[in-house]
Simulated scan of single mutants.
Amino acid sequence: MRGDDLVTLFSAPPAAGIGYRQGVVVEWNPDTAENVIDIAGAQLENLSILNTSESLLLAPGDVVGVLTAGASWCILGRLTIPGTPQAAATIGAGLKAAAVIGNTSISSANYALNGGPTVTTNILRTGRAYVSFASGMDLDVGEAVALVVVATGPGGVTWSSSTVLSGSNLLTVSSGTLGGTLSLGGSTGELAAGLVPGSWTFELHSRKNAGTGNPAVYDRNLSVMPL
């Protein structure tokens, strides 16, 4: 517990043993929930959390409600004021998903949207989101395609997934070993971290990886969950 003088904090304990206070988050570790909360000028370390899901959202500067019960002090949750940017970001930050049904031929060796799904969502102050995507693939002998997520955020900041969904990764198709068209599919995902808070647009890009013909992708899906 920090602070040289806790008189202000404890000078007016709740008459019935149960009370409510407000505090400001000074420090918050999103991985361990270790915290420092300023209440009436005194800094308390590592208060317990009643609403565990709030541990994904809290950040320094947030105002939180604190429940007091005798010597126990617990964080109830963050106070979100309607009409503020913080409220707008939180409300618009749920799971967002998009899908494009049907086949699309891929002719370029450069990554491009190629009519793929697009998702726009608000990244919270944690700067993290879980991104997942899936696709089917129609490949002739020796052909391969690859898919990757590319995103653009506030001020033109960009991010791309390190995970690539590729037909050549799922199954190696060597020229002369198979005849006709091979249909296959897969899905993958990863945690995106260090994103600038604000509105982000995520796109599922694809490209031709190998072969002389034009392979195709189909039934592409993209999901983004801010954390």
Rank of each mutant, 00 (worst) to 15 (best):
A89P: 03
N110V: 05
L57M: 10
N29I: 01
I75N: 01
V164Y: 13
I101E: 14
P85A: 11
W200H: 02
S183I: 09
S223R: 04
G194A: 03
D4K: 12
P85D: 08
G176F: 13
S11I: 05
L76C: 10
L79G: 15
L182V: 02
D4A: 15
S199Q: 05
A109S: 11
L204H: 00
G176Q: 05
E190D: 12
I75C: 04
G213L: 08
V196R: 03
P60H: 05
V7I: 13
E45K: 14
D5W: 11
P154C: 15
T121Q: 03
P14I: 07
V224P: 07
T163H: 12
D38A: 05
A12Y: 04
V164R: 01
A88F: 15
V145D: 00
L67Y: 02
V164E: 13
E190Q: 06
N110I: 05
D62E: 14
I75Y: 02
R207N: 14
A42Y: 11
T201S: 14
Y218W: 08
Y111R: 10
S108W: 01
L191E: 11
A134Q: 09
R21K: 12
A89H: 01
V224F: 04
A216F: 00
V217R: 00
V25E: 06
I39F: 02
W28N: 10
V145Y: 00
G77I: 00
A87H: 11
T68R: 12
M1W: 06
G155Q: 08
G180S: 11
G176T: 09
G127I: 02
P154H: 09
V141L: 12
V24P: 13
V145L: 04
L47F: 02
L67I: 06
A98Y: 07
S48R: 10
A151Q: 05
A93D: 01
G19L: 07
L227P: 04
V119M: 04
P154D: 08
D62L: 13
A12V: 10
L79D: 14
A40I: 11
Q22N: 12
